[in-house]
């Protein structure tokens, strides 16, 4: 196992732990999160859609690999592609059905957090490009391409958030 792989294996859980800790801190500061009945119903449907998206992707990926002998990514990267896709589906459906934020949430920290995630991953991507780090190995996307895949997943989420915010402002109830 190369030093790079070892570094990824050791740093990845640390990065995840930091991300979770930051998210939990954000939630506590944003006061108790509560979804009303309509939002819970909508989020349930979003979870279903995300599950079936992941299942479909996994099935498609497995069939392409085993039957057609077509692969586009190594195992880790391919798995994350499915996860990113499912997360994007969940988030976009929740945003469209007004069930992404609880009615006690302030949306602005989440706009900032998403933007930070996108910019950070773009930065890492460009640093990798500058380093000459290959994102493709033997014709397959490797883990160094995860950053650009994350950006590809989070940009539609952010765009949907912004579009919904503008739409709601425009169609706000006139009193």
């Amino acid at each position: 196992m190369s030093f790079d792989h070892l570094l990824v294996i050791l740093l990845f859980p640390v990065a995840i732990a930091f991300g979770v800790a930051f998210f939990l801190l954000l939630r506590r500061r944003a006061s108790y999160r509560e979804y009303d009945e309509r939002q819970r119903l909508a989020r349930g449907k979003a979870y279903q859609a995300a599950f079936w998206t992941l299942a479909a992707y996994s099935l498609f990926s497995a069939l392409m690999n085993d039957v057609a002998d077509i692969q586009w990514a190594d195992v880790t990267t391919g798995t994350f592609m499915g996860l990113f896709l499912a997360i994007a589906v969940f988030a976009i459906i929740c945003i469209i059905t007004d069930s992404f934020f609880s009615f006690k949430d302030r949306p602005s920290p989440y706009f900032t957090l998403l933007l930070i995630i996108i910019v950070a991953n773009l930065l890492i991507f460009f640093l990798n490009l500058a380093d000459g780090t290959p994102m493709v190995t033997d014709g397959l996307l490797n883990i160094h391409s995860l950053n650009v895949l994350a950006v590809a997943a989070f940009i539609p989420i952010y765009a949907t958030l912004v579009a919904k915010h503008l739409y709601d402002k425009k169609h706000a109830e006139t009193e």
């Binding site: 009303d36 009945e37 939002q39 009615f103 109830e173």
Partner: peptide, 16 residues
């Protein structure tokens, strides 16, 4: 009452 006022009084979101 606005939708927001009613939502807050009832404990749901305005969108609901």
């Amino acid at each position: 009452m606005s939708q927001q006022d009613l939502a807050e009084a009832v404990g749901v979101s305005r969108q609901t």
